[in-house]
Design a protein around this nucleic acid. Sequence first.
RNA 1: UGCCCGAUGGUGUAACGGUAGCACAGCAGACUCUGGAUCUGUUUGUCAUGGUUCAAAUCCAUGUCGGGCAGCCA
Length: 599
Amino acid sequence: MSDSVTPAAPAAPTDFIRDIVSADLASGKHQRIVTRFPPEPNGYLHIGHAKSICLNFGIAHENGGQCNLRMDDTNPAKEDLEYVDSIQEDVRWLIGGWADQSIGLKPVGASPAANPVADGVDYHLSAVLPAASEGQQLEPFFASAYFDQIYEFAERLILKGKAYVCDLTPEETERYRGAPDRPGTNSPFRDRSVEENLDLFRRMRAAEFPDGKRTLRARIDMTSPNVWLRDPILYRIRHTEHHQTGKRWCVYPMYDFAHCLSDYIEGVTHSICTLEFEVHRPLYDWILEALQLARPLPHQYEFARLNLGYTVMSKRKLLQLVNEKIVKGWNDPRMPTISGLRRRGVSPGALRDFAYHIGVTKYNGLTDVAVLEKAIRDDLNRRAARRMAVLRPLKIVLTNIAEGETIPCEAVNNPEDPTSGTRTLHLTREVWIEQDDFMETPPPKYFRLRPGGEVRLKYACIIRCDQVVKDASGQVTEIHGFADLTTRTGQPNSGKKVKGTIHWVSATQAISAEVRLYDRLFTEEEPEKDGRDFKSVLNPRSLEPVTAHLEPSLAGATASDRFQFERLGYFCLDADSRPGTPVFNRTISLKDGWAKAQS
RNA sequence: UGCCCGAUGGUGUAACGGUAGCACAGCAGACUCUGGAUCUGUUUGUCAUGGUUCAAAUCCAUGUCGGGCAGCCA
């Protein structure tokens, strides 16, 4: 019933990246695999990150290696401590009970060691795995923990004549870069002497210049067909306080410079990222090769990011939903964030199962949400305790049951799990049934209650509808009926066949609760198709709160419990619950063949 | 009229020169005290055109279509 009871992982997945890893192990290129998961702490992790986590930690786990958790925090203007905390929580939750022993972390405050090598020093910072932590305090890796080393690498590049300080303005830099189909032109500062470059770079660091005044650039080839090789900027001046390094720096390395070096420092073997970085790979390799480093170099491999139907995936857009209060926060159960899915009641095992089923390729496709929904339902079907709940109540009075009389009914907790036992429900004179489960003039093949018709109350008995009571406007207000107690579950007549079986809750014993019915956030599978604004296709019914009647045992629900409200869907207790006033989230509805047939 | 990457049923993915398979979705049926679950069956596919080969989804060429790349973002 709890998240810790996750199903065994399916057969080890294979994909083109795992093939490369296996080949590298087989050839002896690597003895041990080191991957990394390197989010920028500028937003919450989402299900697309979950795919990457499952890939990177999966590869580490399957090969007895490690996956370093690293904050890629080289742009203090966009980052925040709130995000470094949420990222850690989400990663730990997702890998918990699976690859949690493969996570590479570092001792709090640790920075790379400088080891003497033939022509200088080499920087290396090894991970500590949970099994070897011996009680030391660990924290994620941070690119910002390598700022000293990365800076020093930059000076080395200058010394080798492979980097220079450029005084071009941002606008000029853009103009000089040319265009994809038009070569760039050399910066007039490209041929400064090593001494001048070194002096200027040190003065950049010493805060002698304002933001944007100068940059450090790699000296590669302004005519390269790959624009990322046209003397890319390595360092920029930013007089901004950093959430980790405070005011120590006013120059910050760019992604391309920091990332490959961070990988190198940590001894990463396989640096796996998404397709948009494919054109950066030559630069990744150029920097590492230009530095003539002592240890084996990491290599970058790219896979297609996840695109999921009926959702948006970029942190920028998710932030917009949060900021504009379209949702209640990053962990709103409608969000595709890991924290949102967690609050919604989705287990880490379901997410991993999803990742397994979608695979890893370089094809940029659109994954059907049905695959996610299937993974969520499969998981919950196995684990969720069955309970009775009526979301949209209609009262039925069983006239042959006396007021105050309670008839015990034994109910199975989970037919999928023989060890889950049973519980006792009580049939009373007045019970709630679902409004949908009665129709005065039903269409063909409607199996539920109708005037004069019969239906079974699950785990109780067959009832008959004798009288339909309406108000002045013609609305059905209640139904009077007869309970055939001889057909009670376990009684001799219990085998009597009726077409329909419905759920119910005793009106005198029910507790009430707010139940939040969630639906997809967007009405279109591709919210941004043809450049349309995703906010123009928001689903106005993505959240529908109802006041429901629940069987009394649900009063004892805890946060880790997972329930199936019979015939309705899977539900869990929400954090907004207060003693005596529970709030439940619908994680996902049950498949509804009848509803589908009607549509 | 630049460079890089990709293309297998409706969707996602496998087949690594030798029978096009799996999952999801769909459809049909069985079963059912959840119109759930389960089980059975089933429709639908190699972007195109050439070439290499006894044999091509796979190798080669050309084309078509799709994605990415011109932040002092990552």
